[in-house]
């Protein structure tokens, strides 16, 4: 699989499994899960530093930015202004000009506010950011994001943290057929088969957090996801057989008594 690298905006990525860093028990578990997953892109949130507890540790003490591509996100931002502000803060903190742009539309579903997303993406692209937008499984919006300069799109499989898997496979397939940039399925994966399916459809990568961090055994699930993404990718490249209603024998009739 070494020659099968994912390239986005001139950057090469080895693994097609991207992971979040939230919801783990502690940083030791975070680090172990990420190492086991084989991911080289890890997404992180931007928040106020804890200035009252001087012993509080920094996530980046555990995830070396030289080893991983740190992908700051604007999780928790409900307005264009907030998302732009958080993206700028992330860049000012010095890890990169990449941003996983989220403009959330609603607390219950955490679905993206796609109008706000496009507006925020335009502002940030003009400022030189590499914007990877967390978007809905809407082919029209995905194409608009590409048209304004996003070098990849990140449609959801299902609501964040829901574990429902790919809720709209046909829309996802249309996105995969129509946009000419990498598609990273982001959010909603529940278990290994969901990730494998996304890759079999032709997704370029899958990003997940809760499916690993929330599993009973996060490290074991990280390993499962690693193989699922690899298997799905290989199956996609191998080309599956068509579905048929009736049987086709695999053993020849010739030579039978």
């Amino acid at each position: 699989m070494h020659d099968d690298r994912l390239t986005i905006a001139g950057r090469e990525f080895r693994s097609r499994l991207w992971v979040g860093t939230g919801k783990y028990k502690d940083f030791v578990e975070t680090k172990k899960a990420i190492e086991t997953s084989g991911a080289d892109v890890v997404t992180v949130a931007v928040r106020r530093v804890n200035i009252t507890d001087r012993n509080s540790e920094n996530l980046l003490d555990y995830l070396d930015p030289k080893q991983y591509t740190i992908l700051p996100n604007t999780a928790g931002c409900y307005t264009v202004e907030d998302a732009v502000r958080y993206a700028r803060l992330a860049r000012a903190a010095g890890v990169s000009d990449l941003v996983k742009l989220e403009v959330i539309g609603d607390e219950r579903t955490l679905f993206p506010d796609t109008a706000g997303l496009i507006e925020a993406a335009k502002i940030l692209i003009k400022e030189g950011f590499v914007v990877l937008p967390y978007t809905n499984d809407d082919p029209i919006v995905a194409q608009k994001l590409v048209d304004i300069g996003c070098p990849a799109v990140m449609p959801l499989a299902a609501p964040i943290g829901s574990g429902l898997g790919i809720r709209n496979p046909y829309n996802l397939k249309i996105i995969l057929e129509t946009v000419k940039v990498p598609v990273i399925v982001d959010a909603g994966v529940g278990t290994a088969s969901d990730a494998a399916l996304a890759m079999e459809y032709g997704a370029d990568a899958v990003l997940m957090n809760t499916a690993i961090a929330g599993a009973q055994e996060p490290i074991a699930m990280a390993e499962a996801m690693k193989y699922a993404v690899e298997a799905g990718r290989l199956a996609y490249k191998a080309g599956r057989i068509p579905r048929k209603l009736y049987a086709t024998a695999s053993s020849p009739i010739e030579g039978m008594l």
Partner: peptide, 15 residues
């Protein structure tokens, strides 16, 4: 003054 840094978070608001 706001001092911000990176914390664990993925595809959701991490509260």
């Amino acid at each position: 003054i706001e001092i911000m840094s990176f914390i664990g978070g993925g595809t959701s608001p991490y509260l």
